[in-house]
Amino acid sequence: MRFRRAGTLLSYWQDGEQVFHNYAQRRCVAANDSARWLLDQLGDWCSREQLLALLPGYAPDSVDQAVRDLLAQGLLVAEGSPEAALDTAITEQWAPWLPDAGLHFSTKDTAYVNRDSSAELKAASLPDSPPPPSYKSQPGLPSIALPERQAAQSAFQEVLLARRTHRRFSERPLPLATVSQLLALCWGVTGHAETPTFGQLPLKTSPSGGARHPVEVYLMALQVEGLAAGIYHYHPLEHRLAALNVAASPELAARYCADQRYTGQAAALFLMTAVFPRTMWKYHKARAYRVVLLDAGHLGQTFCLTATDLGLAPFCTAALKDTLIEHDLGIDGVSESVLYVTGVGYPV
């Protein structure tokens, strides 16, 4: 077996100790001088025999134990292992945005609070200190009173004022035509723009940085008339659904959304992923990662407004079981990763 230092490591000082953080494996560990020296030597693949030659004063058993410990802590990866494959995929495919965008991987699969336990939710959400102010004031600066906001003067303004996040839904199923409208108006291609540098670019109802449109959407149909319960990928240009081999259920929907049970009571969920190479191709700095997140946010608001206009009850959530969703969608979690989920039903 050969091994090398993990490529997905960040190091920083915390409480007087040097900490190594493997953002791919989401492991943090403090390292002593010996471990740091060893990591420095193992930038390339190294066999046991080569390592023993580097450490002539150490017993083979102690070296073997040190390697096992560093592998278990995520500081080394073993050749041919799943950890090594993930490490290589991330460091190669995300090279333009690393190490800054290691945040994306380090925040996947977060442990969420049990929302069914009010005591646990309160303990986790309400610290002893008072919350920060909800509004920012500018004392001492001249203040100008504005005219009162007028009543809604257009259908759009009425929709904007009516938008709310819903967590209760009726048992009424959604017509397939309504789901089709949601998909077309939120994620569908509405036209094309010809550019001299980048050629033909798709246009949609939400803005996208550089018109790269990295966000894909997968429909999780739970109660959609004329559509079997399941997960489907939406093609935004052809306006078609491709069925994935996943048996959707209210229980699975709740699991996807960090065990928020209300999500399983919706008629349909829309799972948004990002295909990062689309944006990386044009933007080579890690700041573009922010743009991908903004793109998903634009789509979430477009969805909520469109659903409200259709008389539906929308919600959106970023509390997700990333790895579970990515496994079921058949995506690798590196070049394409889940970001955001919206859902809808009829209001109670």
Results as ranks from 00 to 15, higher is better:
Arg278Phe: 04
Leu329Tyr: 02
Thr308Arg: 00
Asp322Ser: 10
Ala253Ile: 13
Asp259Gly: 00
Lys321Val: 09
Leu305Thr: 12
Gly297Gln: 13
Leu299His: 11
Asp259Ser: 14
Leu271Thr: 05
Leu329Met: 08
Val291Arg: 04
Tyr283Ser: 10
Thr317Ser: 15
Tyr289His: 08
Gln265Glu: 15
Phe315Gln: 11
Lys285Asn: 00
Ala266Met: 14
Phe270Val: 08
Tyr289Phe: 12
Ala266Ser: 15
Glu326Ile: 09
Ala286Ser: 15
Cys257Glu: 10
Tyr283Asp: 06
Leu271His: 07
Gln301Lys: 03
Cys257Asn: 14
Gln301Cys: 01
Gly330Val: 06
Thr308Gln: 09
Leu305Ser: 06
Ala274His: 14
Leu324Gly: 00
Cys316Ile: 12
Glu326Tyr: 05
Val292Thr: 14
Cys316Thr: 09
Thr263Gln: 09
Met280Lys: 11
Leu293Ser: 04
Thr306Glu: 01
Thr263Met: 06
Leu312Ser: 03
Leu324Phe: 05
Ala268Gly: 14
Leu324Ile: 07
Thr308Asp: 11
Arg290Gly: 08
Leu271Cys: 08
Leu305Pro: 02
His327Ile: 03
Leu293Ile: 03
Cys304Leu: 08
Lys285Ser: 10
Gly297Ile: 12
His284Gln: 15
Thr263His: 12
Ala253Phe: 14
Lys282Ser: 11
Lys282Met: 06
Leu310Arg: 02
Thr263Arg: 10
Tyr256Pro: 04
Cys257Asp: 07
Arg255Ser: 14
Ala288Asn: 03
Thr323Trp: 04
Gln301Glu: 14
Met272Val: 07
Arg287Asp: 02
Ala267Cys: 07
Ala313Leu: 06
Gln265Ser: 13
Ala266Val: 06
Asp328Gln: 09
Ala267Pro: 03
Lys321Pro: 00
His298Gln: 08
Gln265Leu: 13
Ala274Ser: 15
Leu305Val: 13
Phe303Gly: 04
Asp322Thr: 13
Thr317Lys: 04
Met280Thr: 11
Pro314Leu: 05
His298Lys: 08
His327Thr: 14
His284Pro: 00
Ala286Ile: 00
Thr273Cys: 07
Ala274Pro: 04
Ile325Ser: 01
Leu269Gly: 14
Glu326Val: 05
Asp328Ala: 04
Phe270Tyr: 12
Gln265Tyr: 07
Trp281Thr: 05
Leu299Glu: 06
Lys285Ala: 04
Ala266Tyr: 05
Phe276Gln: 03
Trp281Glu: 01
Arg278Glu: 00
Met272Glu: 03
Leu324His: 11
Ala319Pro: 08
Ala266Thr: 10
Thr302Ile: 02
Leu294Glu: 10
Gln301Val: 07
Lys282Leu: 06
Ala313Ile: 11
Glu326Gln: 15
Leu324Arg: 09
Arg278Ile: 00
Asp295Trp: 13
Phe276Thr: 00
Met272Pro: 03
Met272His: 14
Asp322Pro: 12
Ala253Gln: 15
Val291Phe: 15
Thr279Tyr: 07
Pro277Arg: 03
Gln301Arg: 05
Ala286Cys: 05
Tyr283Asn: 02
Thr273Tyr: 06
Thr302Trp: 07
Gly300Cys: 13
Phe276Ala: 08
Leu312Gln: 07
Asp328Glu: 13
Ala253Gly: 13
Met272Cys: 13
Tyr289Asp: 10
Leu329Val: 01
Arg261Asp: 14
Thr279Lys: 09
